[in-house]
Computed example of a mutant assay.
Amino acid sequence: MLFEHQVPFRPDWEAVLTPVLDTLVSRTDVDGEALVGYGISQGGYWITRALAFEHRLRAAVADPGVVDVSASWTAALPEPLLDLLHAGRREHFDALLRAHADPARVRTLAFRSKPYASDNLFDLLNEVRRYQVRDVVGRITTPLLVLDPADEQFFPGQPRELFDLLPGEKQIMGFTEELGANWHCQPTGRRLTHTAMLDYLADHLPYPTA
């Protein structure tokens, strides 16, 4: 969708997931009572957001748990730029950025901005700030497994924050260097991740899996 059809990201992922589930449950070869979900990387945000509005999944996994996507974008911004962003002062923000920006970082941000359909950093950051679940997480009723890898680079601390915010059935699972499964999405521990994820989802299916 992104690369072939130029359809950008959107924060309200229920608008994507619900039509998919509508299609699935209409099929005779799909058990509509045994649907589960998995979101990896920034998908940890999207699956969580969608679950606040879409309640037909038996269980889901967020790998990792994500509360606020914008935190990884704004963490490196100096305080004067943050102040201008929060105050909505676009012209002053752009002027200060042009005066002090690192060209290499600007190129990186320009590349990362493409999925958000924005070519201006001020607009981009305001768009990305919409990607947070604090306002809706209390609506989630689906059992959710939150994966929490040590040394998480992009969303540090957010898996635990999400787990604490979740109101219903939930579980958090840590992954460590000792297990060979630290860092974002456990890149060297995918077999361990898949085993834990599939076991959790299977435990919530409406029929025996043995």
Rank of each mutant, 00 (worst) to 15 (best):
M1W: 09
E4R: 14
Q6K: 15
Q6N: 15
R10I: 15
P11W: 13
D12Y: 07
W13P: 01
L17C: 03
L17I: 15
L17K: 03
L17V: 15
P19V: 06
P19F: 01
V20T: 14
D22C: 02
D22E: 02
L24R: 00
V25F: 01
V25D: 01
R27H: 01
D29L: 04
D29E: 08
V30P: 04
V30I: 15
G32R: 08
E33C: 09
A34N: 05
L35F: 13
G37T: 13
Y38L: 10
G39T: 06
G39N: 04
G39F: 10
S41C: 13
A50M: 04
F53G: 03
H55V: 11
A60Y: 11
V61Y: 04
V61M: 10
A62W: 01
A62K: 08
P64L: 14
G65M: 08
V66R: 02
V67K: 09
V67C: 08
D68M: 14
D68N: 03
V69N: 00
T74L: 12
L77M: 14
E79R: 12
L81C: 11
L81Q: 09
L82T: 13
L82V: 13
D83K: 07
H86T: 12
G88H: 06
G88T: 00
R90N: 12
F93Q: 02
A95Q: 03
L96T: 06
L96R: 04
L97R: 03
L97N: 06
A101N: 13
D102H: 00
A104H: 08
A104S: 12
V106L: 08
R107T: 15
L109S: 09
A110N: 04
R112T: 06
K114M: 10
K114Q: 15
K114A: 13
P115R: 02
Y116C: 05
S118L: 12
N120S: 11
L121W: 08
L124Q: 05
L125Y: 07
N126T: 13
E127P: 00
E127L: 04
V128W: 05
R129V: 04
R130Q: 02
R134Y: 04
I140C: 11
T142H: 05
P143F: 07
P143L: 05
P143V: 15
L145R: 13
V146S: 07
D148V: 12
D148H: 03
P149Y: 06
D151K: 14
Q153C: 12
F154V: 02
P156K: 13
G157P: 07
Q158N: 07
D164T: 12
L165C: 10
L166T: 00
L166K: 06
L166I: 03
P167R: 10
G168D: 04
E169D: 15
K170I: 03
Q171I: 14
M173D: 09
M173K: 06
M173I: 02
G174A: 05
L179E: 15
G180N: 11
G180C: 05
A181C: 01
A181I: 11
W183I: 09
H184V: 03
H184L: 05
C185P: 00
Q186E: 09
P187W: 08
T188I: 15
G189S: 08
G189Y: 01
R191Q: 11
R191D: 15
L192D: 03
L192C: 10
A196N: 05
A196W: 08
M197N: 09
D203I: 03
H204P: 00
L205P: 00
Y207P: 07
A210C: 11
A210N: 14
